[in-house]
Amino acid sequence: MFYPNSPQTSPQLTQIPYGQQYAMMQRQIQQPYHPFATTEPQARLYPYHYQGPIQQEQGGFITQQSTAASPQYVQMRVTPVDQSIMSGYPNQTANGSSSSSFNYNIHPQQQQQQQQQQQQLRHHAMPVGSVPLQDDRYRKQLIVNYLAPDVTSTDLHELFSRFGELDGARIIYDKQTNMSKGYGFVYFCHAEDAKEAVERMSGYEFHGKWLKVGYSTNPLNIVPSNSSPYVHAGSRGAAG
């Protein structure tokens, strides 16, 4: 039997160049792979992502010199942007860049009308829970959420009447099932009393439920100042 490094198959040491006398086997001759043993700084910083320098080929596509990437890492192929796409944008300079302001050559009167329309939209648009300043009635009506099913309009009136005089209180019921929808409205005579009720009743436990109280901004629920107070009856038909 002959071994790869046996004296019968191995040459004389004098015939082997210096430095390879003890590297006779194939696994010894093959050098191990060192990912950080390279002179390129990109490979030292990113050993798993770097795959060699990027070269520009004919046709405008950018390719990489090395083989496919590892399945664990996804390499994105980048193509140059066609400058003709950006030619339609206004205020574009000769080098292809555009300024931040756009001039669509709008007539001054049209621009003024658009600004007025935007101001009107901001004036009428009102986020949930906010209180408008032009109508004091919005500051007097509250919406009470997360009410228990057994709470009546009379219970709601008695709960909030300790903060001040009320114009009314009612629970909203479903017309088909005649069941409470879980929320109601309270109408105060003074805005200061309503503000105190919002601050003190939010998070209050009532009939096993934690109440959420806020201003009601729905104009359909506003009680006119010259109208008669609501009837605080315990029956659902009268309260709904």
Rank of each mutant, 00 (worst) to 15 (best):
183 Y>F: 13
187 Y>Q: 01
197 A>F: 01
96 G>M: 08
200 R>P: 01
143 I>T: 01
7 P>T: 10
169 A>T: 13
145 N>L: 01
219 P>D: 00
79 T>Y: 03
96 G>E: 05
80 P>M: 13
168 G>F: 01
62 I>V: 12
106 I>H: 04
171 I>S: 01
110 Q>H: 13
199 E>W: 15
45 L>D: 14
139 R>P: 02
188 F>S: 01
79 T>P: 12
19 G>E: 12
35 P>T: 11
49 H>P: 10
147 L>E: 01
228 S>C: 12
161 S>P: 02
233 A>K: 08
82 D>I: 07
56 Q>M: 05
81 V>M: 15
206 F>A: 01
198 V>D: 00
56 Q>N: 07
34 H>G: 07
222 I>L: 06
93 T>V: 10
152 T>V: 09
185 F>C: 01
52 G>I: 04
175 K>F: 02
82 D>L: 04
43 A>Y: 05
78 V>K: 15
218 N>L: 01
158 E>W: 15
31 Q>E: 08
63 T>P: 10
127 P>Q: 07
166 L>P: 00
55 Q>M: 05
193 D>N: 11
175 K>Y: 03
218 N>D: 00
216 S>T: 13
170 R>W: 01
57 E>F: 05
44 R>L: 08
43 A>V: 04
154 T>L: 02
162 R>N: 12
175 K>R: 05
173 Y>E: 09
141 Q>Y: 00
138 Y>C: 04
197 A>Q: 00
147 L>F: 02
211 L>M: 12
95 N>H: 04
165 E>S: 14
67 T>D: 08
91 N>I: 05
99 S>N: 10
199 E>K: 15
184 G>P: 00
225 S>F: 06
135 D>V: 03
116 Q>P: 08
80 P>E: 04
83 Q>L: 04
3 Y>N: 12
203 G>S: 02
191 A>M: 14
172 I>K: 02
54 I>H: 12
179 M>V: 10
211 L>A: 00
185 F>W: 01
190 H>R: 11
28 Q>K: 15
66 S>K: 15
157 H>N: 08
67 T>A: 09
31 Q>W: 08
160 F>W: 00
64 Q>C: 04
15 Q>T: 09
66 S>P: 08
11 P>G: 06
130 S>W: 11
48 Y>D: 13
188 F>C: 01
15 Q>C: 04
193 D>R: 15
96 G>N: 09
216 S>G: 00
2 F>C: 13
15 Q>D: 07
27 R>H: 03
116 Q>G: 11
171 I>T: 05
19 G>I: 03
151 V>F: 01
126 M>S: 04
228 S>V: 10
160 F>S: 01
231 V>C: 10
88 G>F: 07
239 A>W: 03
7 P>L: 05
82 D>F: 05
237 G>A: 12
167 D>N: 04
234 G>D: 06
13 L>W: 08
181 K>P: 00
21 Q>A: 06
175 K>M: 06
30 Q>K: 14
39 T>W: 15
185 F>Q: 00
114 Q>G: 06
50 Y>L: 11
145 N>W: 00
42 Q>F: 06
19 G>R: 13
81 V>Q: 09
157 H>Q: 09
209 K>C: 02
47 P>C: 02
191 A>D: 03
23 A>R: 13
92 Q>K: 13
60 G>K: 14
192 E>P: 06
5 N>M: 06
167 D>S: 02
239 A>Q: 15
188 F>R: 00
91 N>F: 05
128 V>S: 07
125 A>G: 07
220 L>R: 03
166 L>Y: 00
221 N>K: 14
46 Y>L: 12
5 N>Q: 08
164 G>H: 00
182 G>Q: 02
8 Q>A: 09
33 Y>L: 11
236 R>F: 04
179 M>C: 05
152 T>P: 00
137 R>D: 00
39 T>C: 04
15 Q>K: 14
96 G>A: 12
50 Y>M: 08
103 N>H: 13
90 P>R: 12
77 R>C: 04
25 M>K: 15
47 P>H: 08
172 I>N: 00
168 G>I: 00
89 Y>H: 07
45 L>W: 09
202 S>Q: 11
87 S>Q: 07
89 Y>L: 07
104 Y>L: 09
117 Q>C: 11
57 E>G: 12
129 G>Y: 11
80 P>N: 08
126 M>F: 09
64 Q>W: 02
151 V>G: 00
236 R>V: 06
113 Q>K: 13
219 P>N: 00
77 R>L: 02
160 F>T: 00
235 S>K: 05
143 I>V: 01
226 N>T: 04
65 Q>A: 07
165 E>K: 15
205 E>G: 12
196 E>F: 15
132 P>A: 07
142 L>G: 00
91 N>C: 10
59 G>Y: 05
190 H>S: 04
119 Q>A: 13
194 A>W: 00
22 Y>T: 13
81 V>H: 10
145 N>P: 00
124 H>M: 06
236 R>M: 05
152 T>R: 10
169 A>Y: 03
128 V>T: 11
147 L>G: 00
113 Q>W: 14
221 N>R: 13
101 S>M: 11
75 Q>F: 00
152 T>D: 09
158 E>Q: 13
110 Q>P: 08
211 L>Y: 00
